[in-house]
Simulated assay, not measured.
Amino acid sequence: MSNRQLVPEAKAGLYSFKMETAKELGVNFTDYNGDLTSRECGSVGGQMVKKMVEQYERNL
């Protein structure tokens, strides 16, 4: 498995989505995130997936 993006054009959109989700959760993402806990970072990723699944289900 690799971290290669399948759609490179989506990079800016995913970054915006990540920042929006982090802000909603109160996680202070910056260019350097080494001071964040794994739980904080994981909560952002988990919430992003949750939102994407909800959006997909609405569009069914």
Rank of each mutant, 00 (worst) to 15 (best):
M1G: 13
M1K: 02
S2E: 13
N3M: 08
R4I: 15
Q5V: 03
L6V: 10
L6R: 14
L6N: 13
L6G: 10
V7Y: 11
V7D: 14
P8G: 09
E9M: 03
E9Q: 13
E9C: 01
A10V: 02
A10K: 03
A10Y: 05
K11C: 06
K11Q: 12
K11T: 07
A12N: 10
A12R: 14
A12G: 11
G13V: 12
G13H: 15
G13C: 04
L14I: 02
Y15C: 09
Y15N: 08
Y15D: 13
S16M: 15
F17S: 08
M19E: 13
M19N: 10
A22V: 03
K23R: 12
K23A: 15
E24F: 01
E24I: 04
G26P: 12
G26N: 04
G26I: 06
G26V: 08
V27M: 01
V27F: 00
V27D: 00
F29Y: 05
F29D: 00
T30F: 06
T30N: 13
T30V: 15
Y32D: 13
N33K: 01
N33A: 02
N33S: 03
N33G: 02
G34V: 08
G34E: 09
G34W: 03
D35C: 01
D35R: 03
D35H: 04
D35P: 01
L36A: 02
L36W: 00
L36S: 09
T37V: 03
S38E: 06
R39M: 10
R39Y: 08
R39Q: 09
E40S: 14
E40A: 11
E40T: 09
E40I: 05
C41S: 03
G42D: 06
G42C: 04
S43K: 09
S43R: 14
S43L: 07
V44F: 01
G45S: 13
G45T: 06
G46P: 15
G46T: 09
M48Q: 11
V49H: 12
V49R: 11
K50A: 14
K50S: 07
K51S: 11
K51Q: 12
M52R: 14
M52F: 03
V53H: 07
E54Y: 00
Q55H: 12
Q55W: 05
Y56N: 10
Y56L: 07
E57N: 02
E57A: 09
R58H: 06
R58G: 04
N59G: 01
N59V: 00
N59A: 01
L60C: 13
L60H: 06
